[in-house]
Simulated assay, not measured.
Amino acid sequence: MTANSYFVPGFGISRAVIQNEIRYHCGPDAIVRPYTHQGRDGFLVTTTGPPLTKAQIEDLKMSSRDYEEKQSRRADEVDVFVNQPIAVTQRMRRSG
């Protein structure tokens, strides 16, 4: 069997959810990675199994909403501000 790759738009789909559930939907050899196609962010799915159906993509979106809600509640319990700025030190390049 040959593997097929196809793009799934990422709007409404959590990376953690699609990576966790892709084998359930598309078979044990399925892999998924972040991908940009024609300027749209999403995922590149590679599998020898069947492609995702529209219903399965909707299931992934529902699971993603649930996952994100759980993550935000967990953050509230720990009193963490999700979008809090984090200091990043940058090394200055020396001109040669």
Rank of each mutant, 00 (worst) to 15 (best):
V8H: 04
N4E: 07
M92G: 13
A87R: 04
E68M: 14
Y24F: 14
P51N: 11
Q56P: 11
P50G: 07
P34A: 13
T47S: 07
R73D: 09
P34E: 08
K61W: 13
E77V: 10
I86M: 09
I22T: 05
A3S: 03
N20W: 12
I86R: 13
G42C: 08
T53Q: 06
Q38K: 12
A3D: 01
I18N: 06
G12R: 03
I86A: 08
S72W: 10
P34G: 06
H25W: 12
A55I: 10
R23A: 07
Q71S: 10
R65C: 01
A87T: 08
R65E: 01
R93Y: 07
T89H: 11
K54N: 11
R93H: 13
Q56D: 08
H25V: 05
Y24N: 12
D79G: 15
P28L: 06
Y6V: 08
N83G: 08
Q19D: 14
D41F: 13
N83P: 00
A16E: 15
V88C: 12
N20R: 15
E68P: 04
R93I: 12
G12I: 10
E58L: 09
A87Q: 07
R93M: 09
Q71W: 05
Q84P: 00
T48F: 04
E58G: 05
L60I: 15
Y67E: 08
R33Y: 02
S72C: 07
Q71N: 09
E21T: 13
D29N: 05
N4W: 05
T89E: 11
S64C: 15
Q38E: 11
R33H: 01
I57M: 06
D76G: 10
R93Q: 14
T89I: 11
R65G: 00
T48R: 07
P50W: 03
N4D: 08
R65K: 11
A30L: 01
G49H: 02
G49D: 05
I31V: 05
M1E: 04
D66I: 15
L44G: 01
Y6M: 11
S72A: 13
A55Q: 13
V88P: 02
T47A: 02
I18E: 04
V45E: 02
K54I: 15
T53D: 02
V8Y: 02
H25K: 06
E58R: 03
T2S: 04
Y67A: 07
R93L: 14
R15I: 12
Q56I: 13
V17I: 15
R91N: 08
G39Q: 08
F7W: 02
E77D: 10
E77M: 15
T36F: 02
I57N: 04
H37N: 08
I86T: 07
M1W: 05
T47V: 05
V82W: 02
R91W: 11
E77I: 09
I22E: 01
D59E: 14
N4T: 14
R91M: 12
